[in-house]
Design a protein around this nucleic acid. Sequence first.
DNA 1: GTGTTTATCGTCAGGCAGACGACTATGATC
DNA 2: GATCATAGTCGTCTGCCTGACGATAAACAC
Lengths: 252, 252
Amino acid sequence: MPYDPSAFPPFAVTVDLVVLTVRRHALCALAVRRGEPPFQGRWALPGGFVRADEDLAQAAARELAEETGLRVHDPAVPAQDNGAHLEQLATYGDPKRDPRMRVVSVAHLALAPDLPAPRAGGDASNARWAPVEELLQQGGYGREGEPVAPLAFDHAQILSDGVERARSKIEYSSLATAFCPSEFTVGELRRVYEAVWGVALDPRNFHRKVTGTPGFLVPTGGTTTRQGGRPAQLFRAGGATLLNPPMLRPEV
Amino acid sequence: MPYDPSAFPPFAVTVDLVVLTVRRHALCALAVRRGEPPFQGRWALPGGFVRADEDLAQAAARELAEETGLRVHDPAVPAQDNGAHLEQLATYGDPKRDPRMRVVSVAHLALAPDLPAPRAGGDASNARWAPVEELLQQGGYGREGEPVAPLAFDHAQILSDGVERARSKIEYSSLATAFCPSEFTVGELRRVYEAVWGVALDPRNFHRKVTGTPGFLVPTGGTTTRQGGRPAQLFRAGGATLLNPPMLRPEV
DNA sequence: GTGTTTATCGTCAGGCAGACGACTATGATC
DNA sequence: GATCATAGTCGTCTGCCTGACGATAAACAC
């Protein structure tokens, strides 16, 4: 297959972001409202074109910073505070996924602690955190009974894949701490698991599991009562990234 | 960000394939020799440009068929024989990964049973199955002491990622059966695990695990002595795709 | 037949998870 | 200040699964 610049069609390459966080006991994703066709007025995942001199991960980190102000947590700087976790998710390239032209989108997954408020180019009304179930119920009705339009493009599929990735990945890695502030309690971490998986976990067994896994949590020495009840020990994420044996997601 | 066709740079999009199989107790990958610059004469992963009207998965399946004659196993046809497993692996888009131009490669991972011989456009000398350790030892020496050049482009990274995906995925899925012919024995399946992980497994515990997992293996009723020794029961892959609890990869 | 090879069944101890009881230390309420 | 509600933490018990390994079975080679 000799090299011939005219032998391949040109593509536009974008990055789309599935930015997840846990707010009020629910797994939420960042959505932005589209200002122009196609799908004008509909909600979509944040994203944009990859620039000519940019790596894919760089482009994703740039989009994430533009939309949320978050910086990406650098694994080389373990003590860094409040950095988001960012990883490549999958690539979507159906020829008809964008009616304008051939666009290949490299989707990324970002996990962030609960944030004050989203900003989409400074316009807060065009960006919001929405529970993923709400974004994924295609053409249904929202919590206030208002009709809900499905996400633009194939973003429902991308979001669904991202949520599934997050759900499975917190089983065998310490990634759930990416949803927590830099210092957190065992109970707060448990509520993250409960929100992401949509299940209730036994607080005693959960406590035994996470405190008994070496390298998962390191106590900071402090305590807090911000959740009410007896003061809880504060922890920071330990260096371990893999959980072995994994945290088991309950059946059903 | 209004739509402006001149606002984004054009990319070439390719698919590259990590095709793995198990031959003579070793995990092997398909490599093709490059016939033109850059990296002329060096070994590389098979791949090619995505066509204008083609989905990414279609392009990967087409390349796989061109290089190996393999058809992709369709999950909708469970009884299909000898189909390869194909899944998207990751996307590589470093601006400098191809010196000619900006190329984004959507790598795919294919798992295939042992095949007669590769064919690269009909030229067998330009395609081969090579043990992955041999392909990954950058700039070392092969089994016969001949110098080994590293793979072209970033293909060593892609191959490494694909091997790691395969190694981890057979832990918690029934994907190892994709390396086996349509009917196989427990011992043959065990040798697949041993080759992919590079470890020795206890035959008795392995037998107990795989035969005790519902839906993993379905006995066909037949037996074979093709491995020597006592006749072994023949099995077919069952419908189950997820192994729970997973098959544990031994430490170290 | 004897030895070799591979397959298959059993046994036993240790580790881990689920279920759940008990106790502790706060703030809220009366 | 006593009581209650809330959350956190420590233990216990039982059952399941795994790793280690003994024992038997059924073929082939000589």
